[in-house]
Design a protein around this nucleic acid. Structure first.
Lengths: 145, 145
DNA sequence: TCGAGATACATGTATATGCATGTATTCTGC
DNA sequence: GCAGAATACATGCATATACATGTATCTCGA
């Protein structure tokens, strides 16, 4: 942060810069797996939160439901995810990971681990932990409930 | 962060969540000014870094040059920014803020200040400062030179 | 000075993001 | 049990993001 002017004060611009940089890093490292970090996150959440709805997935990811729908699109097209009308509420779509999706997720995992390792390496353990904690406690206060 | 599984470990997903949330907050507050926080950042940097080139602007914003070009598009279309071939190096385009652009920037400023105030309010002074510091020191280590 | 390589930007392609709105379904009060 | 309100998702629209590639320009050595 070399800027001296007041713009250097803006948490939002700072956050977006950091998010861009770190996303670039992850995406480059994960490229051989054929997944962006966004897509990895979607698959991993779909795996963990079995039969989750589009909206619920959005809440977990702090992502607008319409964005979730669209981001799932390429994953559905590749046959890694299926959207099924919920039996209980036919307005809902349950997000299901397919076998192929689970396989891809498993194969991508080492690259994701490596990306985390490299980031932590660049930051140093202490700063990495500090950053994660700061983000967690901040997010807690910005999200409902 | 209610998730207990290992995904909660990922700095990148965390950063992106936080960036999405904070961007939504800023964009909502700044909407009456007719600018997104991204556009505000571009205009403000163009104002501060007089005659900056597209690439240099990208370096300041940790943004790919092609992304800078495209993000400038709507600002050029609205007559807030002009791209001029550099006299020194005709490959370069100098980013100039127009009078109209300066006016819009000035009008948007109070909304931006208000967004920052609200965020700081939600986080608390100490956590806000901690977060900003953590982001700054982390960014320092992720950027070249 | 001239040509090969490097550089700066623009553009093609694909994805990421959110608001406003539309459609199907469910819920609720009566 | 039904009409109106509320909800869940899809879609139109505008922007945001980056890599690969194309084009114009510059640089530097022979």
């Amino acid at each position: 942060m070399s800027e001296r002017y007041q713009l250097g004060d803006c948490s939002c611009l700072r956050l977006r810069k950091m998010a861009r940089r770190v996303t670039q890093l992850y995406d480059q490292i994960m490229a051989p797996a054929g997944l962006s970090v966004t897509q990895f996150g979607l698959l991993a959440h779909a795996w963990f939160l079995k039969d989750v709805s589009v909206s619920e997935l959005g809440e977990h990811l702090v992502m607008d439901p319409s964005t979730v729908t669209r981001n799932l699109r390429p994953l559905v097209d590749r046959g890694w995810v299926e959207l099924k009308v919920s039996a209980r509420d036919r307005r809902q779509r349950e997000v299901h990971l397919t076998k192929a999706g689970a396989t891809v997720l498993g194969e991508a995992r080492p690259y994701w681990v490596e990306a985390q390792r490299q980031l932590r390496d660049m930051l140093g353990d202490q700063r990495a932990t500090l950053l994660n904690d700061a983000l967690d406690t901040a997010l807690d206060r910005l999200l409902p409930a």
